[in-house]
Design a protein around this nucleic acid. Structure first.
Lengths: 148, 148
DNA sequence: TTAATTGCAAACACTTTGCACGCTA
DNA sequence: TAGCGTGCAAAGTGTTTGCAATTAA
């Protein structure tokens, strides 16, 4: 029994080729991906999985905490990534749209302070940092390079 | 000339009753509101403004930096608020969905550090904090109160 | 066997757009 | 009166759902 089927089984999910394939893709990506992204990869692999199955699978896996659902502020598609159970934040490049995970979190003490000051019971937070990655910075300083 | 028409004029926007009305609603609200919210208020005031005009106006005003566009992570409707030109963060109550602005920002030094460590040129960030407001905490401790 | 899972197409919610008319400057 | 702004209806996009057929356990 492969670790993948274990993962499914232990969450009361039947082990189907669709789910395994989707889980595979998520595990191979260290970047959050959209349902459509996954669907495209599956298609290119000639694995027939319908887009609605992709959505349903991702939703189910999110409920089971196998994956994490992310909505970026540009309100484009919802992104999904394997849940590594690690508190993370994201550096989002405004140039190439790359998303880089960062594991450090500057907010632990702040939350405590905030809670004391406002009476708000803090359950969690979402921090995304926007800017330009080193590669895009380089391209920017190159006056004549094309930017879309 | 009212301050409102000034605001529009100085941004090369014609002063129409629709825009004034929308700006009014935004200014009265210290909570971010959706296009639909604004549309409802307008309707209740018997001001005939179509929903598409509300969307178009908000979009235009966002371009002119008169309003700020917010997408919350639950991927519900886009919210808008008057741009106070103040760097803010939001406390979002998971109980009553209320959104509270906070003016302090714990991240200034962190951004600098991050930039040094990663080579990422930080342009900005988005921080939302989730939890329960004092009122909802109270309701929670009240075992028999109804929660939706 | 039988309940969970899937594919398909249709429905959905929110938002955007094309076009003819209206109104501001 | 020129052209920006508006209303309407229709189209778009991303996502969800109903249902009948399929498949894992």
């Amino acid at each position: 029994m492969t670790p993948k089927s274990d993962k499914l089984k232990s969450n009361d999910l039947k082990n189907t080729k669709q789910r395994t394939a989707i889980l595979n893709i998520l595990e191979k990506n260290n970047q959050p991906v959209s349902a459509e992204d996954i669907y495209s990869v599956l298609k290119s692999q000639n694995l027939s999985v319908s887009l609605s199955t992709v959505y349903r699978t991702l939703e189910t896996m999110a409920e089971k905490k196998l994956v994490t659902k992310l909505n970026m502020q540009d309100n484009s598609k919802t992104l999904f990534e394997i849940n590594h159970e690690i508190h993370k934040h994201y550096l989002i490049c405004l140039g190439c749209k790359k998303i880089i995970s960062i594991m450090s979190c500057p907010l632990e003490n702040y939350e405590k302070k905030l809670s004391e000051e406002t009476g708000f019971l803090v359950e969690g937070h979402r921090l995304d940092i926007y800017g330009y990655c080193p590669e895009c910075r380089e391209n920017m300083s190159d006056e004549n390079s094309t930017v879309n």
